[in-house]
Design a protein around this nucleic acid. Structure first.
Lengths: 117, 117
DNA sequence: CACCTATATGCCTTGACAGGAATATTCTGA
DNA sequence: TCAGAATATTCCTGTCAAGGCATATAGGTG
């Protein structure tokens, strides 16, 4: 798993750009307009996203249209697959799952109520 | 989607810690040992991971055992769900998918070879 | 309590990164 | 070729985060 995708998504503006591109491709100017960013910073963020492989640019006349690239999202999904046993509670791992709960449950031993003032 | 999870995973050492905890919970010292980190930085990274909700600590005698918390991973999976149409090529969106390909295809117009010098 | 182990915290330095502003580049059309 | 629009790049600056190191805290055991 390339952790550059996390670096790219860690910035709030870049995250917004990705969320915007999920709906449909946008030009640089459209992104800057929709998100209230300035054009230079938008270009810079798009460069980071492109270097991380999340976005690819398609020249179209005077503009450059930003598209989401499917691959890193699929990679992220594949990576997440190895973590699914964490929340898909399998009964044969129930005891391990129970150990992940916060220990608010008192230890089942000699603990009668009112024992210690 | 809380983007703090991306910030937490963007650091390579924290990413390694998460990968290590996927197998089984580890104490702070074990993590530092397995990853070749110093103890203070390991504690700091675990604090970042805990604040981001990815990890929770369980005191056990002298040590504190770090566990992965299922919730943010499930949240990440839910968030990714909205991106699945990107790579699960649905035929009713094929034209949109084709538009994401690099435009190596020449525009079907008057482009005969050797036309200009 | 004294001592040891495990872990957390504080301070410092350094490097990376994001935003602002100005400017350079590229493309289009006449 | 020139003009104008869309986008990229450069330089500067402030901020933040990570690592190194020393030290504080907590928990366990005698």
């Amino acid at each position: 798993m390339n952790h550059h995708i996390f670096t790219a998504l860690a910035d709030p503006h870049r995250f917004q750009i990705v969320e915007l591109l999920r709906e449909r491709p946008h030009s640089v100017g459209e992104i800057a307009d929709r998100l209230g960013l300035r054009q230079p910073q938008t270009s810079k963020h798009l460069r980071v996203l492109t270097d991380a492989g999340l976005v690819h640019m398609e020249p179209q006349a005077n503009r450059r249209i930003a598209h989401l690239s499917p691959t890193p999202f699929r990679d992220l999904d594949d990576w997440l697959t190895r973590y699914r046993p964490l929340w898909e509670e399998r009964l044969d791992r129930l005891d391990d799952y129970l150990r992940t709960l916060p220990p608010e449950d008192p230890t089942p031993g000699p603990t009668e109520p009112g024992g210690s003032p």
